[in-house]
């Protein structure tokens, strides 16, 4: 009897109830991206000039990418917390599908990212960001951001089940994610970076997902130099390759870790 889907739904619902119980959590999850958009948009936006275009418009896709990448760390901290509190022990003694706990977790975190993207898009629209393509292409852009974040959730699931406390997940992922989202084309055009950083940025999947979203939203500044690397010339395919690879490698690793996980 395969109980994967019903079990995953039970777990996802359980995760979402937590958001309902602690409304502050939702306030902070949505407040932070709003703050980012306003800070970057008005502070950097005033200082950085992109000829023939608005920096604010250029910036939005980068902030979207950075925020959903950070959002994926919730998967890791939540699993580490469940392990610490013995809840994973409880699940593992129940006759339920083993992969459902991880699938339910990554799915509810995906929903969380959907909500965050909606809030950010509305804030962006309010300060002058516009989609200059079609609705379909814009939705494709959002979908790509979500797919990318979802694949990172599986990386974080593995990390969360490896370490001993949720704080370690938060700190460790911060160290990795901060450079990953800054040494990229998220906030500046990568052509302007010094060579080693530029090469990193050009092959960084955070750059490719940002580039893809920017293209799909129609936010590439007119007259911007054509990308020179294959990754940025084919950002959608390159991003999807990373996403598929991350899930293919880390979903089995995380599941193996879950099967042997015991608190303390």
């Amino acid at each position: 009897m395969n109980t994967f889907f019903p079990d995953a739904v039970v777990i996802a619902r359980r995760n979402l109830i937590k958001i309902k119980r602690i409304p502050e959590l939702l306030v902070f999850t949505t407040f932070q991206p709003i703050m980012f958009i306003l800070l970057f948009g008005f502070v950097f936006g005033a200082a950085i000039d992109i000829p023939g275009s608005s920096y604010r418009e250029f910036l939005i896709a980068g902030i979207f990418a950075q925020t959903v990448v950070f959002g994926s760390t919730i998967t890791g901290t939540a699993l580490a917390e469940d392990m610490q509190k013995g809840i994973i022990d409880r699940f593992r003694t129940l006759p339920m599908s083993e992969s459902a706990v991880l699938a339910g977790r990554t799915f509810s975190d995906l929903l969380n990212n959907v909500l965050v993207l909606i809030v950010m898009a509305l804030t962006g629209l309010a300060i002058g960001w516009r989609v200059r393509t079609s609705l379909g292409e814009a939705l494709l852009g959002f979908a790509l951001l979500l797919v990318f974040a979802y694949s990172l959730s599986w990386v974080m699931a593995y990390v969360g089940l490896r370490v001993r406390s949720p704080e370690i997940v938060a700190n460790a992922s911060f160290i990795v994610i901060f450079p990953l989202t800054f040494i990229a084309n998220t906030f500046v055009q990568s052509e302007q970076l010094p060579t080693p950083l530029r090469i990193f940025a050009e092959w960084n999947p955070v750059s490719s997902v940002t580039q893809a979203a920017r293209e799909l939203f129609g936010n590439i500044p007119p007259g911007a130099p054509e990308p020179t690397t294959w990754a940025l010339q084919n950002p959608i395919i390159y991003t999807l390759m990373w996403a598929v690879a991350a899930v293919a490698v880390f979903a089995p690793l995380a599941l193996r870790r879950y099967r042997g996980a015991v608190s303390r």
């Binding site: 019903p6 359980r14 109830i17 119980r21 602690i22 409880r90 129940l94 006759p95 339920m96």
Partner: peptide, 16 residues
């Protein structure tokens, strides 16, 4: 974060 009732219902569902 779940109520007592939600906890027990969740376990019941996971026992199918």
């Amino acid at each position: 974060y779940l109520t007592g009732r939600e906890n027990l219902e969740m376990v019941g569902r996971l026992y199918h």
